[in-house]
Design a protein around this nucleic acid. Sequence first.
DNA 1: CATAACATGTGACTGTCATCACGTAAAATT
DNA 2: AATTTTACGTGATGACAGTCACATGTTATG
Lengths: 233, 233
Amino acid sequence: MAITVELLKRFSILRDLPEPTLLLLASQAVLRKFSRREIVVDPSEQKSALCFLFEGSLQGVDFTLDGREVGLYFVRPGDFCGEVALFDAGANPEFVIALSKSQVVILPYSALESVMYESKSLIKALSQRLAYRVRELTEQRSILSLPSIPQRIHRQLWQLTGLKADNIPSNEIEIIYPPTHQEIAIMLNTSRETVTRVFQTLLAEDIVQRNGTNSLIIKQPEKLYALSNTSEK
Amino acid sequence: MAITVELLKRFSILRDLPEPTLLLLASQAVLRKFSRREIVVDPSEQKSALCFLFEGSLQGVDFTLDGREVGLYFVRPGDFCGEVALFDAGANPEFVIALSKSQVVILPYSALESVMYESKSLIKALSQRLAYRVRELTEQRSILSLPSIPQRIHRQLWQLTGLKADNIPSNEIEIIYPPTHQEIAIMLNTSRETVTRVFQTLLAEDIVQRNGTNSLIIKQPEKLYALSNTSEK
DNA sequence: CATAACATGTGACTGTCATCACGTAAAATT
DNA sequence: AATTTTACGTGATGACAGTCACATGTTATG
């Protein structure tokens, strides 16, 4: 399926690129649909591609020897993934799988390798993206170090809101397509049951509210924030 | 203290840069000594610098709200750190502190910002470095997901050897300036006492051996590797 | 619309390890 | 050489959360 420059401009990393570069990239990109649980980025693949998420949701995951799944990060529409192996001979460090039916713009490395170091704005955007990934992984590592598991869950939920500490709305906000308890559990090194139990408490205290499968309402963001920052058990 | 091009060439990321670029960088770099526990990279600093470790050892750390220290990575001589904030307006995501008396070549961002996107080999090296950081953080995340804490410690020790699974020597090898139990504990989300107890077991089974403060002998690398990969409890 | 597949809820049980408290050993500093 | 600081060693205790087992909702899908 053909990709237009307009479509590429929906992705912030590409938005500011010069028109000729965008045209070149668009001509080599394809749109692909992925069904639930399908693998989008496979680290064992030799030739890989940048994957821009147009619709749906993805998760970066790793696997331990015993087959246990490890959650690394979520990919939301407008975001992209699969960039790590673009820079050297190494492979991508993780799988990316579709959490729900998703549409992804596939841009093969081969389309980029020849131009990425020539276009200052492109390489700048790409390296900024890597810097962002490092920050994100560090942030997640810091959540993992929280001694209390309920607190980890509160923090992760807070993270999913995308809110900043200096701008907490008093009214409720919505998280669309929230991850399942299992998907949250593997991000936080905990078990699904524990996530369920913590959610029960949050529901009981009227801090969050379920709203069908693909919407979660944070009724009291300030309370959630407070919980994610209290070190008392 | 003045820096020579020769000195810069000791660092693999700079080695292949053209001579004029190296001269330019050398003229703006300084050598600084850090004593134990001193802060090398401070995320709250506005203007930062790349820090090339010439001698000693550093650790990237983060702090939780309750003041608990979180270990992120170790920096060994020849390596460098402080590169994340170079790419955008954001700050470095973590502290880097000196674990022992260290000598560091300080290269201010200002020396790089004007040239980094112009020199293809430089920006390439820098972005490859970021890709490496992402891989390293992912690897560490995967260690953290191991359900058994002793196994985490075995894996971390194995990591410190720098050995690859496809090349395990049958003779003993040495880890110089090994981290303290405390420093290992904060990397693995565990307590110092637990690290001590696991080391006691390894000593008893003659798999490792202490050799003064700043040397640890892995007497049986293959056994350590086996332990780091057995999922039985 | 029936049935399978998946997501969530809940109780009981148990092992592991964090924490506390202290002792010893080895450096570092004076 | 004396003293302080830092690293390591070890036992006792208790809480937390992982695991198992199963029930109940809820969403796909033929």
